[in-house]
Computed example of a mutant assay.
Amino acid sequence: MAEKITGYTSEMCQQAMIDELKELFRDMKFTGQEGEKQLKIFKQFIPSPTDDDDDVDTNRSNFPCIIVSRTSGEVVNEKDPQLVLLQLIICCYDPKTDRQGYEDTGNIIEAIMQHFKRKPVFGEAFKVGYPRKWDLSDDDMDFYYWGIVNLICETPNTLKNEEVEALI
């Protein structure tokens, strides 16, 4: 029988980040395949294609998007919070020949970095710590422009060591 999960989890942190990003980008539009469109936000992976790529050149495409990936965690000691590394993988689309699609990716990165500078607490319980890193890809992938933001998030430590508590 599996032990009941109590307290805050890394999955809760990931979902809270998704909710925070949806709110942050709610009213923003970016270059899409058929004009401006909203940013899609995915949990852990981009959905697998279910057709023969008929949607790749339409606004039904999954791009532009942010993939919120929970990649690792660490608990340093009994008293400190769990640290969860969330990677925000950003992909924008721009078919123009001037190859300026990286600008949308860069603007999304800046919006994220500035947002968490002003409001490091999200989901009422989680906190974005330091260091905060970002990177723009220089890979040549026609029309697709990639970037990444690595955020170390603190998950509140609300659990107590039951064995120690029983001795007290």
Rank of each mutant, 00 (worst) to 15 (best):
K4D: 08
Y8S: 07
T9Q: 11
E11S: 09
Q15K: 15
A16C: 04
I18R: 10
I18K: 08
D19Q: 12
D19C: 07
K22G: 05
K22V: 00
E23P: 00
R26K: 15
D27G: 04
E34Y: 01
K37Q: 13
L39G: 07
I41M: 01
F42M: 06
K43I: 02
Q44M: 01
P47T: 02
S48V: 08
S48C: 02
P49G: 07
P49E: 10
D54F: 07
D57H: 12
T58I: 09
N59S: 05
S61Q: 08
I66Q: 07
I67K: 09
V68P: 06
T71G: 07
G73I: 01
E74Y: 13
E74W: 10
P81G: 14
P81I: 07
V84W: 03
L88G: 10
I90G: 13
C91I: 13
C91T: 15
C92Y: 02
Y93W: 13
E103Y: 11
D104L: 06
I109W: 04
I109M: 08
A111M: 07
I112N: 05
I112W: 04
H115M: 04
K117H: 09
R118V: 05
P120L: 02
P120H: 01
P120T: 03
V121L: 11
G123N: 04
G123P: 01
A125T: 04
K127Q: 06
G129Y: 00
Y130E: 02
W134Y: 10
D138P: 00
D142Y: 02
D142E: 01
F143P: 00
F143Y: 04
F143A: 12
Y144I: 04
Y144G: 08
Y144W: 02
Y145Q: 01
G147K: 01
V149C: 09
V149H: 03
C153H: 02
E154I: 00
N157I: 02
T158K: 08
N161K: 03
E163N: 14
V164D: 04
A166Q: 08
I168E: 13
